[in-house]
Design a protein around this nucleic acid. Structure first.
Lengths: 158, 158
DNA sequence: GTTGCTGAGTCTGTCAATCAGACCTAGCCT
DNA sequence: AGGCTAGGTCTGATTGACAGACTCAGCAAC
């Protein structure tokens, strides 16, 4: 049984495009830092151990792609600097980050648990991602999800 | 205001660990293929354009990490081969994939839309990820999510 | 049984990215 | 003037991506 997907093109696949940004080795780690409130070059570097050059490149790429923006700031008794903050586009990565965190927590955590958790600001309860269909059905079984061609699908050229 | 996160260690961070697997350039693209039902080496290679060597490496890594497994099969009039299938661990990546897809669709799609969509098997309605807290509150605003240390948190050594 | 085909690779060489470590720079402070 | 510091550059070694040619096992047709 030949999978139907073979006839669809992948040239305009949004997962591939997203992974051009998110798929580099350190990108999500940098974003984790920013989501955690760590916004300055050296703080990130010391915490994560990312080589300077790579961190420079990642930050520049994320700014160029519109995920982060550079914001000037000035601490008293110190010259003006800038820090990195999330744009709208960046903030919308929360579900991605929480999804990765959830998966990592389930399969890769140390016995004592994950070092990071996310909470709902209003009630303090733990936040998780879930799949839900447009009809409002909760989806708990991975096998209940079915991929299919979307509106932008193209036939494979050859 | 110095972010509190600076005092926590990141050595056992599950996001970093997950990204060691998912963060390589082609991993999620390979997984997209498998989720789409494309399970054979050459089909993946032709569709995605991933160099053979890289595809070999990715598949081997994913098998070794327990995300995929090799399954032997035999087509009539052909010698035995094997294909790649998702393990439980792999199937649990659905939320990650759907989250990345959702983000990509919003910010990186062509005007005519995304080429890929996911549906609920029972009702056919579109599936999306959402954030929800343990109290059952739906979270729509990214700013309502608050990171905090988890049970496995460690202090930074130096 | 030899020849050819096919899916799933390996081998080889080139080019780009990562990494570690040293060096540089602007503005503030003394 | 000299020192400190955040946020970088520069340099050279190692690793990874990539393209293209080659390999190999088993089935099938001759």
């Amino acid at each position: 049984m030949r999978p139907a997907a073979l006839d669809w093109s992948v040239e305009n696949c949004t997962i591939a495009r997203a992974m051009e940004i998110l798929g580099e080795r350190w990108t999500l780690v940098v974003l984790r830092e920013v989501f955690n409130g760590v916004r300055r070059f050296d703080d990130m570097r010391v915490r994560t151990g990312i080589p300077r050059q790579v961190l420079t490149n990642r930050l520049a790429m994320l700014v160029e792609r519109g995920v982060l923006r550079r914001e000037p700031y000035r601490e008293p008794g110190s010259r003006p600097r800038h820090e990195y903050r999330l744009t709208e586009m960046g903030l919308d990565l929360w579900p991605v980050l929480v999804a990765v965190l959830g998966w990592g927590d389930r399969y890769l955590a140390d016995p004592e648990g994950s070092p990071l958790s996310v909470a709902h600001r209003d009630c303090g309860a733990e936040v998780r991602v879930g799949l839900r269909c447009a009809e409002g059905h909760e989806i708990t079984e991975a096998r209940d999800v079915l991929p299919r061609p979307g509106p932008g699908v193209r036939r494979r050229n050859p």
